[in-house]
Design a protein around this nucleic acid. Sequence first.
DNA 1: CGAATGAGATTGTTCTGACATTAAGACTTT
DNA 2: AAAGTCTTAATGTCAGAACAATCTCATTCG
Lengths: 246, 246
Amino acid sequence: MANNLGLSIDRSSPVPLYHQVVQGIEAAIYSGVLEPGSRLDNEIDLAAQLNLSRPTMRKAMDELVRSGLLVRKRGVGTQVVSSQVRRPLELSSLYDDLTNNGKKPTTEVLSFSHVEADDATLATLQLPAGSKVYHFTRLRKVGGKPLALMENWVRDDISAMDEAMLSAEGLYSILRRGGVNFRLATQRIGAMTANDYQASMLDTSAGSALVTMERTAVDDTGRRVETGHHVYRADSYSFEMTLVQR
Amino acid sequence: MANNLGLSIDRSSPVPLYHQVVQGIEAAIYSGVLEPGSRLDNEIDLAAQLNLSRPTMRKAMDELVRSGLLVRKRGVGTQVVSSQVRRPLELSSLYDDLTNNGKKPTTEVLSFSHVEADDATLATLQLPAGSKVYHFTRLRKVGGKPLALMENWVRDDISAMDEAMLSAEGLYSILRRGGVNFRLATQRIGAMTANDYQASMLDTSAGSALVTMERTAVDDTGRRVETGHHVYRADSYSFEMTLVQR
DNA sequence: CGAATGAGATTGTTCTGACATTAAGACTTT
DNA sequence: AAAGTCTTAATGTCAGAACAATCTCATTCG
């Protein structure tokens, strides 16, 4: 029963109808209203309950299937996935993760500027030409030991930002307080060897292995909020994850 | 012009029409008929050329966009993506991914043995003491260029395995034919610098950056089927993923 | 009691149709 | 030459409709 799931549709919203359904069902799953393993009403009934067409409802369902939250089978129905995709690497910041793991991270802001974005940044953040961004580099330490060197570009229309804020807390906390609801991020993990600068910042030797991560985060309105290039000491950092067969 | 792409639709085929379009356009891209950066006809024209409906054509296009081959923009059109396809984070094998992406991987089996598992392997694969496993090292090349050096341990009660099989196809294909239904895998991604052996195998220099991946795969009965240590040239390989907010 | 069959439930596929939104380019005006 | 406006092109969204394929369960038959 859609109504029991607390789904609601706002036809005056700029958010597409199918996407409102996605968000509503996601919220129901994460809040526990829809429990793992539980079955949903069939798509025709769900559509009727929300006064939506079946193709619109199907588009929402397909997206939820693709994101691993639902599983569907012809003749059987739709079910909430029982073993959710667990990613130790969630859409969160390193600062959050370290703090949540009982460690005390510190941040040193190495550089900070509010500048006009270059073409690559404009493209990545989908900004119009001439836009300015916050561009900064930070060194993250844990227990006094350098762990990560991070360079980020953040669109400047969210909230003002300065070095003191960045020293005191994580970037994502700052952005959340500025009203950002992170929705997803694309990210690429690779490797490189440390150059002289990176080596000195991370208290390691030039040529040692670094894990690299490039990420672009998107909020719930579809805005590309920030993009970053991070490098981590390979001896102190790796990404762990569980993959589930689709 | 769809006809110039060599697309054809077989309505007697059990393959859905939208999927035939996907396969046809993928083939055109990988064969070079559709070059990176080139623009496609608009979806209405393409649909008309193939006697398909617009929603069917859109469904095919959407899948090609999601798989990273096409990029579309309202008011502008559809274009073949210019960047190299990187490995999505799915439970599959490198061999499968490369083959599916139109590349021709080759495998050189560097070592192969059927031996009693050491304690670490027993623990990782949850095998009783005294169990034997297949233990082998392979070099994976793409277009003649070394990409990955892979060392795996596979439990030996699934199917017989030998060097010829491993040279001819991917490990996961072999295991699937042996009846394995992969369910999930745990994996850790990191970085290291190449030692002399790895450097010589991968045709790179000692000290260069390598992406590392350790994985243990589980089948649908809960068995730990295989565990592996892979290293990839960092200049040719990265992991790409999309994280969704919980 | 087990196998076979059929009905019902549900998703999957395809189609026709229409309107909305975005982007680019042409044209006009300042 | 630059800015503004308008038109055109193309994708994005939504709706209604119908048929196909798959799966489960109940019923019937041997």
